[in-house]
Design a protein around this nucleic acid. Structure first.
Length: 588
RNA sequence: GCGGGUGUAACUCAGUUGGUAGAGUGCCACCUUGCCAAGGUGGUUGUCGAGGGUUCGAGUCCCUUCGCCCGCUCCA
């Protein structure tokens, strides 16, 4: 009867993370709090290295992306405009029988779409439903289709009493009565099994707070559920001050908050988490056509290494997928562990033209690290509508290009765009207004959004790095060596410095001197206690790629030994040579 | 939110029919040590997840609650 709990595949890693100081449970001394995690001494270095690498790759080493650091709490209207206030706060119901959770406002629609609903419609359509037919169905097919419907569970008892009230009932009332155990109060039926649904409960996935000391509903604000909206809200300010114009991007890292229904899988789905997001603003394809004559699409098999003026949104989107994959590889996730997933058209949000998830093969399943969405001009348009402020850019080259068109070419272009838009289900008036602006050099930029999770990346790196290996010593004794094989680029500690023996003052002093030098460049760790082998193994568990040991030969010729974490081999080299070597490796 | 499992030292775990908590590892100090969890000596650690109840007495039995893990919903 007592089935043993299946062990989590993450358990050994969770244990190591606590033991070595990577990750602790938040508020542990008070019993913890669900969905929140703290990063200890090694964990915060790891996270910091991830973020630094991202920032360097995305912002510092590019001329077309600039940074932003916006607040976590913003004007609540932002979340109205973005759609979060509506989509993040659906009332939900749970079926008391089959335990499924669903949006309360969709239960009737779901019912209408399935076999259960069809059967109900048929029975109800008889006008004044005949008890006999209803009873027959409940005793027959109903058992398979809606096993938890009250009338199916107790057809004779319930239906006998209920006959009168069923006559003349509306469809919903009819079904609701059949779902009712007490025969009187209609209950919401579960579209999956006919069971009774709970009262709709508000499910707000956004954290609410109050701005100012007065606890008044008028002062309600939200902790941001994503960092990206601030980028849109500050779009015009950045545009005006950064001397950038599309194509260009705005990058931001920071905390976000979601009241997740089920925080699970260690830090993977946390309620407070950190994101690294880019909004890369591009010209609409119609503008590219005016500027370059035609739009480059994936069908042209473009070279994706260097951005080109004639790229359309599709090429930009794929470019960013490639760029992001390259970054994951560069910080140590093997290409084979990364699984890009192209969302099917039916899965896309209504505003998205394409979305690729970059997934990692976690021990608990293949899960998303980053989503790269082509969001068209949806977000900026929303903010323009809600704020009343223009989100357009003025594009001088575009205006000049448009001015060169003669009357026939101009008309042809307009008609082509209108035809294209109406074919995609948009209004002709809307299309004409867009073209008119475009010919004047004005448009709302489209956007490609690579949005990555810092904590998820940290977890992926930990999972990827974790290894237990069997090592056999000189005496033939075999034991397990636990090692975190981080790329040196993200390793919390880059190099540890040991005096071979601590009770020889000259040796000790020399080691301290070298440690002092190295510390100015990299995250270093000093360890003088215990045998040398033990110190090496301690650093293996911390994922430190190099250990430097100062011995008696150091005093003679200035060389030290450098021990490699992965091969456990040593090489002897001078301190300047070592600095050069590490610089080469750690510059990335 | 629902169901199942689980919670004892920093980590891994033992703890009998209820009788007042232990092992290994780690960690710290000293000695020893010329390079892979070496040896010796000494030391350190617990609201037994929390709260309540039953009892003369609860880590152990009952109730409540919280966290974690495993399954249903979410997508950074």
């Amino acid at each position: 009867m007592a089935t043993p709990a299946p062990a989590s595949k993450l358990d050994p890693l969770v244990s190591l993370c606590k033991r070595r100081g990577f990750i602790f449970q938040s508020s542990e001394i008070y019993g913890g709090i669900n969905g929140f995690w703290d990063y200890g001494p090694l964990g915060c270095e790891l996270k910091s290295n991830i973020k630094q690498s991202w920032w360097k790759t995305m912002v510092r080493t590019r001329e077309d992306i600039v940074g932003l650091d916006a607040t976590i709490i913003m004007h609540p209207a932002i979340w109205k405009a973005s759609g979060h206030l509506d989509t993040f706060s659906d009332p939900m119901s749970t079926c008391k029988h089959c335990k499924k959770l669903m949006r309360a406002d969709q239960t009737w629609e779901m019912l209408a779409d399935n076999e259960f609903g069809a059967a109900m419609t048929e029975l109800h359509a008889a006008g004044a439903p005949e008890l006999g037919r209803v009873t027959a169905w409940c005793k027959g097919r109903g058992k398979g289709i809606a096993p938890n419907l009250a009338a199916v569970r107790n057809p004779d008892g319930i239906l006998a009493v209920m006959g009168a009230s069923l006559a003349g009932a509306t469809f919903r009332n009819f079904v609701s009565l059949l779902a009712s155990d007490n025969l009187v109060t209609p209950v919401q039926p579960c579209p999956y099994c006919g069971g009774e649904l709970t009262e709709p409960r508000p499910f707000n996935l956004m954290f609410k707070t109050i701005v100012g000391p007065v606890e008044d509903p008028a002062n309600i604000a939200y902790l941001r559920p994503e960092t990206a909206q601030a980028i849109f809200a500050q779009f015009q300010n950045v545009l005006a001050t950064s001397r950038q114009s599309p194509p260009f991007g705005i990058a931001q890292m920071g905390k976000s908050f979601r009241n997740e229904v089920t925080p699970r899988n260690y830090t993977f789905r946390s309620r407070e988490f950190e994101q690294m997001e880019l909004e890369f603003f591009i010209r609409p394809d119609e503008a590219i056509e005016l500027l370059c004559g035609r739009v480059t699409t994936l069908a042209d098999m473009p070279d994706l290494t260097t951005p080109q003026d004639n790229w359309g949104w599709q090429v930009w989107h794929t470019y960013w997928v490639e760029q992001r994959l390259a970054w994951y590889r560069s910080v140590g996730l093997p290409a084979a562990s990364l699984v890009p997933y192209w969302q099917q058209p039916a899965e896309l949000a209504h505003y998205a033209r394409a979305c690729v998830d970059i997934q990692y093969a976690f021990p608990f399943g293949i899960q998303e690290l980053e989503g790269i969405a082509a969001r068209s001009d949806f977000d900026l348009t929303q903010h323009q509508k809600h704020s009343g402020k223009s989100m357009e850019v003025f594009d001088e080259p575009l205006k000049l290009a448009a001015a060169k068109l003669d009357e026939t070419a101009r008309t042809a272009f307009v008609e082509r765009v209108v035809a294209d838009w109406t074919a995609r289900g948009k209004g002709a008036d809307e299309a004409r207004a867009f073209v008119a602006k475009l010919l004047d050099g004005r448009y709302i930029p489209h956007v490609i959004e690579p949005s990555a999770g810092v904590d998820r990346m940290a977890l992926a790196l930990l999972c990827n790095a974790y290894a237990e290996e069997q090592v056999t010593d000189d005496k033939g004794k075999t034991e397990t060596r636990t090692v975190l094989r981080f790329s040196p680029l993200v390793a919390p500690i880059k190099i540890a410095v040991f005096p071979l023996i601590k009770n020889k003052p000259e040796l000790y002093a020399k080691a301290r001197e070298i440690f002092g030098q190295l510390q100015r460049r990299w995250a270093c760790f000093w360890d003088e206690s215990g045998a040398i082998g033990r110190r090496y193994r301690r650093m293996d568990e911390a994922g430190t790629p190099y250990c430097l040991t100062v011995d008696f030969q150091t005093l003679e010729d200035g060389t030290v030994t450098l021990r490699d974490r992965d091969t456990m081999q040593q090489e002897r080299l001078t301190v300047p040579a070592l600095k050069e070597k590490l610089d080469e490796i750690l510059l990335g």
